[in-house]
Amino acid sequence: MSSTTFYEEIGGAETFRKLVHEFYLRVADDPVLRSLYPEEDLGPAEDRMRMFLEQYWGGPTTYSDQRGHPRLRMRHNPFQVDRAAHDAWLTHMLSALDTIDARTLDDAHRAAMVDYFTRAAAMMVNTPEDV
C-alpha cells in the first residue's frame, strides 16, 4: 500500500515554491517585516523557508541536511518579533496561501496549513508589547 505525504497531496515543490515566493513578494514591501531581514536580497531567506516548509509537510529533508535541526525559536531569537511582526507575517502568509489554486489546496489541507501558520507565528513572538 502506497501512502502519500501532505507535501505530495498539495502538489509538492511547485506549490511550496509558489507559496513562499508569494509570501516574500509581500515581505519585500512590508516596513515591519523587511527590517527583520538583514540580507539585501530576500532570495536566501526565501530558499530557507521553502526548504523548511517542504520538510515540515513531508517533502525532502534538504533543510536539515544543509542547516541541521530547524530550532525555529532559537534561529529567530536575535530578532525582535513583536505583535506587529506577528500580525504582518501571518497576514502575508495567509494572503500567499490564498494564491494557491483550490484544486491544488482543498479546504482540509488549507485548514491544516492555516492552523500551523497561526501556531508558528504565535510561537515566534519574543518581544513584549511594552518594549
Rank of each mutant, 00 (worst) to 15 (best):
H92M: 02
E40L: 11
A13E: 14
R119P: 03
A108L: 08
D65A: 15
D30E: 06
L105E: 00
V32C: 04
R83S: 13
D47E: 12
H69R: 05
P44N: 11
L105F: 01
A122S: 12
R119D: 07
T118K: 08
Q80Y: 09
A45V: 01
R73E: 13
V20K: 00
D29W: 03
M124L: 15
I10C: 00
L97Q: 03
T99R: 04
P44S: 10
H76D: 08
L97V: 09
A85V: 06
R67I: 02
L25N: 08
E46Y: 02
D87Q: 13
T91I: 06
T62P: 00
R75E: 03
F16N: 00
A112D: 14
Y24Q: 08
D87N: 14
D30N: 13
D98L: 08
L72E: 05
V20Y: 00
A122K: 07
H86I: 04
M1L: 11
P44R: 10
E40K: 10
V27T: 05
R73H: 14
G43E: 09
L72Y: 02
L97A: 01
Y24L: 06
S3P: 07
E8N: 10
R67E: 04
S95W: 03
G11R: 04
K18P: 00
A13Y: 09
R17S: 11
D30S: 06
K18V: 01
P60N: 08
E129G: 10
A88D: 10
E22R: 05
D98H: 11
M49Q: 13
I100V: 13
D130I: 15
L53M: 15
R48P: 03
M93V: 01
F117R: 02
Y63I: 05
D41V: 05
P31M: 05
A96D: 07
T61P: 04
R110D: 05
L53D: 06
Y63A: 04
L19A: 04
S2K: 15
W89V: 00
R17P: 00
Y116D: 09
Y116T: 14
P78L: 05
H86L: 12
R50W: 01
T62N: 01
A28L: 08
N126T: 02
A28H: 06
R71L: 06
L53A: 09
H92P: 01
M74T: 11
D29P: 01
E40M: 08
G11Q: 05
R67C: 04
L25T: 04
E8P: 09
R73K: 15
R17C: 02
A28I: 01
E39I: 02
V20G: 01
F23L: 14
H21I: 00
T104M: 11
R73C: 12
T61A: 15
Q55A: 11
R119E: 04
H86G: 09
E39S: 12
T118Q: 13
E54K: 07
D106R: 11
E40S: 13
E54D: 10
T99P: 00
H92V: 00
V32N: 08
Q80T: 13
H21R: 09
T118R: 11
G58Q: 05
H69I: 00
E39Q: 12
T118L: 08
M123D: 07
T104F: 07
A111L: 14
T104L: 14
L97S: 02
F117M: 13
D30K: 04
M124D: 08
E39A: 12
M51N: 05
T61Q: 11
N126H: 02
Y116K: 11
G11P: 01
T104R: 14
M49Y: 03
A96K: 06
A122M: 07
Y116R: 14
R73G: 13
